[in-house]
Design a protein around this nucleic acid. Structure first.
Lengths: 113, 113
DNA sequence: CTATAATACTGTATATTATACAGTATTGTC
DNA sequence: GACAATACTGTATAATATACAGTATTATAG
């Protein structure tokens, strides 16, 4: 018999790895309307999706670098915030990605069940 | 308007990234019975899951190193093959991982739809 | 008022790992 | 006798989530 805590440790590690790949879809799908890092962080936590600053901020920077997001530094608010939103390319890519993953999820579900 | 080929290129790249994380679950779920690399490769292709040698072989080696698989080099066959199969830890982890991802998939589906 | 928690970032380093690349050898099959 | 398919091993590399360090402001509770 293997200790449940030991199993859980392994599951946590592999689970994180699995979540990793899907983060892009999760985050992009939230940025059809503008969000800043912290607001998105809280929003995702609320919805049961665990993610840390250390993951989210660099990801948003990366998605901007890769050309999917535009950002807008707003200072006319209680405190300065960088708002991100999908641009035209981002929108188009998200739409196609969703479509593709409806299929992929089916395949994976079938394989892993 | 953005060229469809351009969008597809981006989708392919992000899609590969998404698939990446799930590979572990996909592969482990096939190794409740023993398989060798090439047989698993063909099996997954058949089921609509694209994966290359370059991904699969190193992954199986890694899962063995991490203690989830045992391997067995069989030479009494038309040609020598290394068979892999989940060991006790692997079975336990897979079971827990499946359970956890039933939940996770629900969350992600809800968030990304 | 003043400590503390929550908010809201930026910048750089590191560890992990899928993928790529190179190579080897055997077994069909045309 | 050539070529495709089978079936690996070993090492290199590029991408990127996560970690770590640092900064500064605004609520809030005592």
């Amino acid at each position: 018999m293997i200790e449940p805590e030991v199993i859980q440790e392994h599951v946590d590690k592999l689970s994180a790895e699995m979540r990793r790949g899907l983060i892009v879809l999760v985050v992009m799908s939230q940025l059809e309307t503008e969000e800043y890092g912290y607001s998105l962080l809280k929003k995702l936590e609320e919805k049961g999706y665990d993610i840390t600053q250390d993951t989210l901020y660099p990801l948003m920077r990366r998605l901007e670098t890769q050309g999917y997001l535009n950002s807008d530094w707003k200072v006319d608010e209680p405190r300065p915030r960088r708002y991100y939103q999908l641009n035209e390319l981002g929108e188009a890519v998200l739409e196609a990605l969703r479509k593709e993953w409806k299929e992929q999820f089916k395949v994976i579900e079938e394989i892993t069940k």
